[in-house]
Write a protein that binds this DNA or RNA. Structure first.
Length: 972
DNA sequence: GCAAGGTC
C-alpha cells in the first residue's frame, strides 16, 4: 500500500519518545510540510506524521518510538518455577524472547503501523543495546509485514545536520552488535538464575539470617554485576580489618618570622626505624642552623572539570550533597523529563563542535545566583571564556549533561532538584571557563645534611572557581626566604605517628571501581549499588561509606574459599571482551555462548560440590536454623526426562539415604510417578546419551554400576541403561534384585549421597579466566598477579562465634574440605566430623530461634531416646506443641494435638509406631490425619543444592502438616 | 522469588 500521493510510507522507530519527537521535529522543520501528532496504543509513545523526501523520493513519514528494550529473555514455562527443575539445568534450558505485558501496547502500535508501511527505518541509539532493540522492532514488524524494506539511521547527536545526514544515508542494521547483546542477556540470565536459586535454597533456611526481611522472602541473589560490586566493598573492608598499625617517626621543623610561620616537612617523609630516626634527629639538634638551599616560584593552574557525564554527576552529587547515586538519577530523570537538563544517562564527557555553547550560557544570565558570572563569561573583554576540555569518552548517542532550559527554581522542586540543577548549570559554566591560576612557592632548607621543605600558594585568578563553589583550592602564604639565607628553627621535633588503614569505600569510590572495571553501564551502576542494600549484602553509614553485612561478607568468603573469583570483576571483564569480539564479528554468538556457559556450568557444579565452604562461611556469622530447608522439599537430582504422567515437572535421578536409586518426578506429591531401580545398583549417573526408542523424549541414558555379588554372573557390572521402559536388562535385574522402594526395601547401610555427581568431570573444562586447559580457574596463573584477597586475621577469632550444633549429614559427607576444622581449628577432619562437637549436649546456644525448648516428657519408642515437648514459633503454628526425638539419628516428629484428637483414639504410641514404621525420618503430616508422607516416604533425596533430603514439610512455611502446594501462607 | 539492560 502506498502513502498519500504514491509516496513511500515509512515507519520510523526511535528508542524513546523524546528522540522520536526530536527526529520528527528536525526533519519536518527542514523540508517537511506540517507536522501532525496522533496517539498510539501506548500513551507515552506518540506517532508523528509529515511528508518528506529521502534521496529525492517522496515519503510519508511516521515517527514513533519504543521505550528501551521491547522484549525480555525468559525461560520456558516449566523452568520458571524454582522447584520444578535442577538449577544446573538453567544453563541449557530453552529460553525465548517475549514482549512483556507492559510493552504490549507498543507492540500493537508497531504492528498496526507496520502493516501499512513499505519501509521501516530504525532510529535506535547507535550502541550495542540500541542495535539489539532494532532487531526486536524488526521481529515485531516483519511478523506482520514480510515485505518491509528495513533500513537503519545512524546518528550521533540530535542535531539537524546529523539527523539529515542519517536519513539521506541509510544503512543496514548491524547483526553483530545485536548478537553481542543477545549473548550477554543469555549469559546473565542463566548465571543469575542458577546461582541465585542455588544459594538462596541452600542458605536461606539453613541459617537464622537476621535481616529485616522475613527470611522466607529473602533472596540471596547472584549477578555478574552485583557480586563484583559487593566484592569491592568486601575487599576494602578486609583490607581495613587486616591492617596492622605500624608506628613511624618523622622530624618536623617550623620557623616563625615577622611574616608568619613556615612549617617544614622532612623530605625523607618518615622512618619506621626508631633508632635511625633518633640518630638523625640528634644530629639536627646538635647543629640546628638551617640554610635555604632552594627557592622555587611557579605558576600553577587548576583546571575546570571535564563536561559532565553520568558517573561524574553521581559522584559529585554524592560528595557535595551526600545524595545516593540512585536518588541522584531519579531527580536527574525528573529534571530531564521537565526539560531543564539534557539526557542524564550519558558516558560522553566532551561537547561536539556543533553545540552552541554560547546560547546555553546566554540563557543563564538572568539567574540571581550565577547570572552575573554568565554575563562576564560572555563578555570577550573579561577573557574568562575557554572552550571546554574533552574527557575522551563518547557514547555517540548523547551529549554531556548540560542545562537545556533556564530556571531560577520551580515551585514543585525539592531541595535536591535545586541542588542538582545548580550543579549541572555551575558545572557547565565552569567547563567553559579559564582555569584558576595560582603562584606556588617552594622553599628547601638543609639542617645538618637533612633536607626539609615548605610550600605556600597564592591564588592569582579564581576564574572558574568563582562559579564552581563546590571546589576550593586551599593554600597558605609562605614567608619570604632567599637562597643561602640562614636561620635557627623555632621548633625541631621528633614526632611519632601510626599508619592508618584506607577508609571504607564511599559511593564515589565505588562508582570509580565499577567504572574502571567495566561493571554495569552509566545507566545501571546506581542500580547495582542499590541492589547491595536491598539484598542486605551491604550497608551505607552516615558518612555515605559502605560496609558489607555479615551476609555479604559470608557469601564472598564462601566463594573465595572455593577458589572461585565469582565476586571479582574478572568474569565480567572476560564476558565484555567476548561481547566485543562478537560485535566485531571476530567470534560468533553461538561460540561465545557455548564456551562461557560450559565454563560457568562447570563452575556451578563445582561450587555446588564445594557448598560446605559456603556453609562454613555462613556459620562464622549466623546461627544454624532448625527450620527445614525449603531446599529439602522439592529438590532435584540429575535430569532424566520430562514426566510422562503429569507432563509438567522433570523426572530426576535420586538416591535415598539407604543408597537406593530411583527416578522420581519433581512434581511430587501431586505427581507420584517414580521408577525404582534395582537394589544392586552401587552407582548411577545420568549421561548425555539419549534413548532413541522411548517417547516422549529425550530420555537420557543412565550409566549404572552394579554390585558384582548381588547380580547373576551372566550380567555385566556396568550397564548403560534406559528407564523409559525399553531396557530389558534393567527390567530383569529389577525383578531379580528388587528395588530400594519401601515395598521391597533390602535394608542396606547408607552410602554417600553424592556418588551420583561425577565430581571429576567438573574440573576438566578450560579455565574460565584465560580459556586454557590444564588448570582450574581457581589456579589460573593469569589471576595470580593481583593481590589475593587479604583476609583479616581476626576471622579465626570470629569463627568461634559460629560454634554450634554439628552440621547436618550432608555437610559431613562432603570430602572436599582440606582446611582446618572451623570449630577446633585442627586439620584431619572436617567441621562436620569435629569430635569437639559430636558428644555431649548440642551446644549452649539455643537450638533454634524458631523453637523454644521444652521439657522432656517421654521417650521415643522408635529409638528409645527421650522426646522433648517443644513449642513451635513459626508463623503458621505459633504456640502449637510438638514432640520430637532428641536423638540425632531419629527424626521422629509429631504434633501434640494430633495425639489427642478424635481419630479413633490414636495415642502417642500408635502415632509413634506408625511414623517410625513408614519412615525413619521425620514423617511430615503423618500425625495430622489429612495427608500422609506418601508412598515415597523413607526416601532421602539429593536436593537442588546437593543435600540429602530428610524431613518432609512445607517449604513455604515449614509446617509439617501440609505441603507447599496447599500452604495457606503462600503468596503472603 | 533469579540477571542486566533499555526506558516511562
Amino acid at each position: 500500500m502506498s502513502g498519500s500521493g504514491g509516496s513511500i510510507r515509512v515507519l520510523n522507530v526511535a528508542e524513546k519518545p523524546s528522540v522520536a519527537k526530536s527526529v520528527a521535529t528536525l526533519l519536518s522543520g527542514n523540508q517537511g510540510q506540517g507536522l501532525r501528532v496522533r496517539e498510539g496504543r501506548s500513551r507515552y509513545n506518540k506517532i508523528y506524521e509529515f511528508n518528506y523526501s529521502i534521496n529525492g523520493r517522496p515519503c510519508h513519514m511516521l515517527v514513533t518510538s519504543v521505550t528501551g528494550h521491547l522484549m525480555e529473555l525468559e525461560f520456558e514455562d516449566r523452568f520458571r518455577k524454582w522447584h520444578a527443575c535442577d538449577p544446573a539445568l538453567l544453563f541449557t534450558a530453552p529460553v525465548h524472547k517475549k514482549v512483556p505485558e507492559d510493552k504490549l501496547d507498543i507492540k500493537r502500535t508497531l504492528e498496526e503501523e507496520a502493516r501499512r508501511c513499505q519501509w521501516l527505518v530504525l532510529w535506535l541509539d547507535c550502541d550495542r543495546e540500541g542495535e539489539n532493540i532494532a532487531f526486536e522492532v524488526i521481529e515485531v514488524c516483519t511478523a506482520v509485514n514480510r515485505h518491509l524494506t528495513i533500513r537503519r539511521a545512524r546518528f550521533s547527536a540530535l542535531t539537524e545536520r546529523d539527523i539529515y545526514n542519517a536519513v539521506q544515508n541509510l544503512v543496514n542494521a548491524n547483526k553483530f552488535f545485536a548478537d553481542a547483546v543477545d549473548a550477554r542477556q543469555e549469559i546473565d540470565l542463566r548465571i543469575g538464575a542458577s546461582f541465585t536459586r542455588f544459594q538462596t535454597m541452600l542458605l536461606r533456611d539453613a541459617f537464622v539470617i537476621d535481616s529485616t526481611a522475613s527470611d522466607r522472602n529473602l533472596v540471596l541473589s547472584y549477578g555478574p554485576c552485583q557480586f563484583p560490586t559487593l566484592g569491592f566493598v568486601v575487599e576494602r573492608y578486609w583490607e581495613i580489618q587486616s591492617h596492622e598499625p605500624e608506628e613511624f617517626w618523622t622530624i618536623n621543623c617550623s620557623h616563625k618570622s615577622d611574616e608568619g610561620t613556615a612549617t617544614f616537612h622532612w623530605m625523607r617523609g618518615h622512618l619506621f626505624d626508631y633508632a635511625c630516626a633518633v640518630v638523625i634527629y640528634e644530629m639536627c639538634v646538635e647543629e640546628p642552623t638551617a640554610t635555604v638551599t632552594k627557592v622555587r616560584q611557579q605558576e600553577k593552574l587548576k583546571k575546570p572539570p571535564n563536561p559532565l557525564n553520568t558517573i561524574q554527576l553521581e559522584q559529585r552529587a554524592s560528595i557535595y550533597f551526600r545524595m545516593s547515586s540512585e536518588h541522584t538519577m531519579k531527580v536527574a530523570e525528573e529534571l530531564y523529563q521537565a526539560g531543564f537538563i539534557s539526557y542524564p544517562r550519558t558516558e560522553t564527557d566532551g561537547f561536539s563542535e556543533r553545540t552552541d555553547l554560547h546560547a546555553i550560557v546566554e540563557e543563564q544570565q538572568r539567574h540571581p545566583g550565577w547570572g552575573s558570572y554568565a554575563q562576564r563569561l560572555l563578555d570577550p573583554a573579561s577573557g574568562l571564556w575557554k572552550n571546554p576540555s574533552n574527557g575522551g569518552h563518547d557514547d555517540k548517542a548523547h551529549p554531556p549533561i548540560h542545562p537545556t532550559k533556564f530556571s531560577s527554581g520551580e515551585s514543585g522542586w525539592s531541595q535536591d532538584h535545586h541542588r542538582l540543577y545548580e550543579l549541572v548549570v555551575r558545572h557547565f559554566l565552569a567547563c567553559v571557563s579559564q582555569p584558576a591560576v595560582g603562584a606556588e612557592t617552594t622553599v628547601e632548607i638543609d639542617i645538618a645534611g637533612e633536607l626539609f621543605s615548605a610550600s605556600g600558594r597564592v591564588i592569582l585568578a579564581k576564574n572558574y572557581l568563582d562559579v564552581y563553589r563546590f571546589e576550593s583550592w586551599g593554600g597558605s602564604l609562605l614567608p619570604t626566604y632567599e637562597f643561602g639565607q640562614q636561620f635557627v628553627p623555632t621548633t625541631l621535633t621528633l614526632d611519632s605517628g601510626v599508619t592508618r588503614p584506607p577508609p571504607l569505600l564511599s559511593e564515589a569510590d565505588l562508582l570509580s571501581c565499577m567504572d574502571k572495571e567495566g561493571i554495569g553501564t552509566d545507566a545501571t551502576m546506581h542500580d547495582h549499588i542499590k541492589k547491595l542494600l536491598d539484598r542486605f549484602y551491604a550497608t551505607k553509614d552516615s558518612s555515605m561509606r559502605f560496609s558489607p553485612t555479615n551476609l555479604g561478607e559470608a557469601l564472598v568468603m564462601g566463594y573465595d574459599d572455593m577458589g572461585y573469583k565469582l565476586w571479582k570483576p574478572y568474569l565480567r571483564a572476560v564476558m565484555e571482551r567476548d561481547m566485543k569480539a562478537v560485535s566485531e564479528g571476530a567470534k560468533s554468538k553461538a561460540e561465545v555462548l557455548e564456551t562461557c556457559l560450559q565454563q560457568m556450568k562447570a563452575c556451578f557444579l563445582d561450587a555446588r560440590l564445594n557448598k560446605v565452604k559456603l556453609f562454613e562461611a555462613m556459620s562464622v556469622f549466623f546461627e544454624r536454623s532448625s527450620r527445614p530447608s525449603g531446599d529439602d522439599q522439592h529438590t532435584s537430582g540429575e535430569f532424566v526426562r520430562q514426566c510422562g504422567l503429569c507432563h509438567e515437572a522433570d523426572m530426576v535421578l535420586r538416591q535415598n539415604r539407604d543408597g537406593n536409586f530411583m527416578v522420581g518426578c519433581l512434581g511430587y506429591p501431586q505427581c507420584r510417578n517414580a521408577v525404582w531401580l534395582p537394589g544392586s545398583v552401587s552407582e548411577a549417573a545420568v549421561t548425555t546419551n539419549v534413548c532413541n526408542s522411548c517417547t516422549p523424549g529425550p530420555v537420557y541414558l543412565i550409566q549404572f554400576t552394579f554390585r558384582r555379588l548381588e547380580i547373576p554372573p551372566n550380567y555385566s557390572a556396568n550397564h548403560l541403561g534406559c528407564i523409559g521402559g525399553c531396557d530389558e536388562t534393567l527390567r530383569q535385574l529389577t525383578e531379580i534384585c528388587g528395588t530400594g522402594s519401601r515395598l521391597s526395601a533390602r535394608g542396606r547401610g547408607p552410602v554417600t549421597s553424592n556418588n551420583n555427581v561425577p565430581r571429576s568431570n567438573t574440573r576438566q573444562g578450560p579455565c574460565i579466566y584465560c580459556h586454557q586447559a590444564g588448570h582450574s580457574s581457581g589456579d589460573c596463573p593469569s589471576q595470580s598477579s593481583g593481590p589475593r584477597s587479604v583476609r583479616p586475621q581476626s576471622m579465626n577469632v570470629q569463627s568461634a562465634r559460629g560454634r554450634g550444633p554439628a552440621m547436618s549429614n550432608n555437610v559431613q559427607q562432603s570430602n572436599t574440605r582440606q582446611g582446618a576444622c572451623i570449630y577446633c581449628h585442627q586439620t584431619g577432619h572436617s567441621s562436620g566430623d569435629c569430635p569437639s562437637q559430636s558428644s555431649g549436649p548440642q551446644s549452649a546456644r539455643p537450638r533454634s530461634m524458631n523453637v523454644q525448648s521444652g521439657q522432656v516428657s517421654t521417650s521415643c519408642s522408635t529409638c528409645g531416646a527421650p522426646c522433648a515437648l517443644r513449642t513451635a514459633n513459626t508463623i503458621a503454628n505459633r504456640g502449637r506443641k510438638f514432640y520430637s526425638c532428641q536423638s540425632q539419628a531419629c527424626n521422629f516428629f509429631v504434633w501434640e494435638d494430633s495425639l489427642n484428637n478424635d481419630n479413633g483414639g490414636r495415642g502417642f504410641q500408635r502415632a509413634n509406631v506408625s511414623a517410625s514404621a513408614s519412615n525413619p525420618t521425620r514423617s511430615g503430616g503423618s500425625g495430622r490425619g489429612g495427608r500422609g508422607a506418601g508412598d515415597a516416604a523413607g526416601v532421602s533425596f539429593v536436593s537442588a543444592t546437593g543435600d540429602p533430603v530428610s524431613g518432609r514439610r512445607c517449604f513455604a512455611c515449614g509446617d509439617p502438616s501440609h505441603f507447599a502446594n496447599v500452604c495457606p501462607n503462600r503468596g503472603n
